[in-house]
């Protein structure tokens, strides 16, 4: 057992040495794998960030309660107090018809036209902000339904359809990234497979000799499997560095842009978990690609 482990370690370091002995070839392969893996990883990171953007808006969701026309201010304020005491409500703000009209005049640009009206056509509005735990789209929707049934309320409007649509689009994009990752994973398999195929062919005579003196297929396979594993692992590491570097370059401009929208949004980098998956995925793909190539080509090399 100890011997077995020792032999694996020997082959492991031998394979690392082989990579170091042909640094340019090794680097080219690793670069191709790295760039191939970086693409889906970068898209994944960007999607995660977009989801956080959507999530941020979601949290700021408000429910607008339009009260029946001509509701006296005292009734409205009493209703506001009643709602404030309900579970799932963080705050309630009362907007009188007068201030609503003032705001409308300011924002709509119809100021002069509105002066022609002899009475205020706007209802009083209560702005309800759901508590954090009830801020999800569906929970807020339920809250809006409950509030809509209160006496004195004409209409409860919770307009987060666009958040849901964004959510659906992101889900679609996620599926797309998954498909892309699968295809590019296959590309990595082929790249590693081809590199290993060339390595096998260039060491043909050595493999023949080892077969002649009683080397098993497993023994001959081992260094190639380790080589594939390392290429994949280093490819994954390069992909991580590429994605993290790109996101770091984008972080400044994104902060700038978010600032212009009055947001403190910060671009999140690839997390430790995603990075680990990238490394493990790269190593697995490298090993698998090597395994496929070795299985196909070793049998063809027989001493003769």
């Amino acid at each position: 057992m100890k011997n077995h482990l020792l032999r694996h370690l020997q082959v492991l370091f031998y394979s690392l040495g082989e990579l170091a002995r042909a640094p340019l070839t090794a680097f080219m392969t690793i670069a191709v794998i790295g760039i191939t893996l970086a693409l889906p990883a970068a898209l994944y990171a960007l999607l995660g960030n977009l989801q956080r953007v959507g999530g941020g808006w979601d949290e700021g969701a408000q429910i607008s309660l339009f009260l029946k026309l001509n509701t006296p201010e005292t009734t409205a304020r009493a209703l506001a107090g009643q709602i404030r005491a309900m579970p799932g409500v963080a705050s309630v703000r009362y907007i009188s018809p007068t201030s609503a009209l003032k705001e409308f005049k300011r924002l709509s640009g119809f100021g002069d036209t509105l002066n022609l009206l002899d009475s205020n056509p706007l209802p009083a509005v209560l702005l309800v902000r759901p508590a954090k735990h009830a801020a999800g789209a569906s929970a807020a929707q339920r809250l809006a339904q409950t509030l809509g049934k209160l006496p004195g309320v004409a209409l409860a409007q919770f307009d987060l359809e666009w958040v849901r649509r964004l959510d659906a689009i992101l889900r679609l994009a996620q599926r797309g990234v998954l498909i892309l990752a699968l295809l590019l994973g296959i590309a990595v398999l082929l790249v590693v497979g081809n590199t290993i195929r060339l390595a096998i062919l260039s060491r043909r005579s050595e493999i023949e000799v080892i077969k002649l003196i009683g080397g098993t297929d497993a023994f001959i396979r081992r260094p190639f499997l380790y080589a594939g594993l390392f290429q994949g692992l280093f490819g994954g590491l390069l992909a991580w560095i590429l994605v993290a570097g790109s996101l770091a370059l984008l972080a400044g401009p994104v902060r700038n842009l978010a600032g212009l929208y009055g947001s403190r949004f910060e671009l999140a980098s690839l997390g430790l978990q995603a990075g680990t998956i990238l490394l493990l995925g790269g190593a697995t793909l490298g090993w698998l690609g090597s395994r496929l190539a070795v299985g196909r080509h070793l049998r063809a090399i027989e001493p003769g």
């Binding site: 023949e208 000799v209 002649l212 003196i213 009683g214 098993t216 297929d217």
Partner: peptide, 16 residues
């Protein structure tokens, strides 16, 4: 076959 080949020694003209 590998295990069988370990039981015999072979010397080649081109020594391999």
């Amino acid at each position: 076959i590998p295990y069988f080949r370990r039981e015999i020694g072979v010397v080649f003209q081109d020594n391999k």
